[in-house]
Amino acid sequence: MPKLSRQEVEYVARLARLGLSDDEIELLRDQLSAILEYASVINQLDTDDVEPMTNVLPLRNVMRGDQTAPGLTLAEALLQNAPDVQDDQFRVRAILE
C-alpha cells in the first residue's frame, strides 16, 4: 500500500479543522499510513457474500415514546459553557454564506 501523500494528510486535517505544522504533517503521514496498512489486512478476505454490518450489538428498534421532559435552563445551556454569548444566543465569528 503506497504511503499517504502530503496533500491527503492536509485534506483530512482541513476536514477536521486541525492546523498542522510541516513536521506534524510528515509524522502523521507515517502514522496514518501505518494504520491504513494494518487495517488493509482485511482486504485479503473475500467478503462478496457478507452482509455489511452497521452495528455490532444484537439490538434492534430501540425507540422511545414521543414524550417531552424538561431540558436545561438557559443559564445551564449557555452561561456555564459558552465562551461567548449575546442576546441569549451563542456568539461565533460571522459565517459567510
Binding site: M63, R64, G65, D66, G71, A77, N81, D88, Q89
Partner: peptide, 26 residues
C-alpha cells in the same frame, strides 16, 4: 420560542450523551 430554551445535553451535543429514536417520527 425564546432562543435556547428547548435544549438539553443531547441536542446540544455535549460529551457522553446518547440519542434515542423517537418512535412517532419513524
Amino acid at each position: 420560542a425564546p432562543p435556547n430554551t428547548y435544549v438539553c445535553p443531547v441536542c446540544l451535543g455535549m460529551p457522553g450523551t446518547l440519542p434515542v429514536i423517537n418512535a412517532q417520527a419513524v
